[in-house]
């Protein structure tokens, strides 16, 4: 797809960042939101903070040095919080002191983070399958079969405008689902279907 963003990386770098965010950050967003709620962040402030966190990721010049993306994400959110407290932009959250006390004890790596390709596929297909009927058809053609927007419109005999609307609607639902349940679902699926690979070294 065309990336026309001027803030942050462009071209290949943007592509790499998107892949990184999609695979390493998004799956932890639900846990991050839970953590923020536990810290006392009000529900209506959550989205603002999460958006701010993602915006920070745009400033990353490289991310291959991030060994534990989950911990990185939480640290990043913590910094956003601290800053907001300092600017008293968000007044309803805990004090800076409380925040520091909380530390990073529960930010350890997620043991199930290495999902098998099948678990990953099941997750992605599950997201698509959970969509309302027409939405699902659009996503199946676009994502499972790789058709363009115009091709999808033609295939389903609907206007491109409707494909666009369904795309936005479906993406919105998927993001909402990931924000609520995302990683919990992944974990359950991984333990049930994950397979171990034994490496024969010598």
């Amino acid at each position: 797809m065309s990336n026309i963003v001027q803030t942050g990386p462009t071209g290949e770098a943007r592509k790499a960042l998107l892949a990184f965010v999609g695979a390493q950050i998004l799956p932890h967003e639900a846990d991050l939101r839970h953590w923020l709620l536990r810290l006392g962040v009000k529900a209506h402030e959550l989205d603002d903070i999460v958006q701010d966190v993602y915006c920070r990721l745009l400033r990353l010049e490289r991310f291959d040095h991030i060994e534990d993306p989950r911990a990185y994400l939480f640290r990043c959110a913590r910094n956003v919080l601290l800053e907001q407290v300092r600017r008293s932009k968000v007044v309803s959250i805990m004090t800076v002191q409380n925040l520091d006390e909380l530390g990073v004890a529960d930010l350890g790596p997620n043991p199930e983070s290495a999902a098998s390709s099948r678990a990953e596929l099941v997750r992605v297909l599950g997201l698509i399958e959970g969509l309302p009927e027409r939405c699902r058809q659009v996503f199946e053609l676009r994502k499972v079969h790789g058709l363009s927007q115009a091709e999808t419109a033609k295939a389903l005999r609907i206007s491109e405008n409707i494909v666009e609307k369904e795309t936005a609607r479906g993406l919105n639902l998927i993001l909402r689902h990931m924000a609520d349940a995302g990683s919990g679902v992944v974990r359950a699926l991984t333990t049930r279907t994950g397979h171990k690979r034994v490496h024969v070294a010598d």
Partner: peptide, 16 residues
């Protein structure tokens, strides 16, 4: 926040 939200949405789109 627009930039953050857009990155998030596009990442989900690409992830699919």
């Amino acid at each position: 926040r627009h930039q953050g939200a857009f990155l998030r949405a596009e990442a989900a789109w690409v992830m699919l």
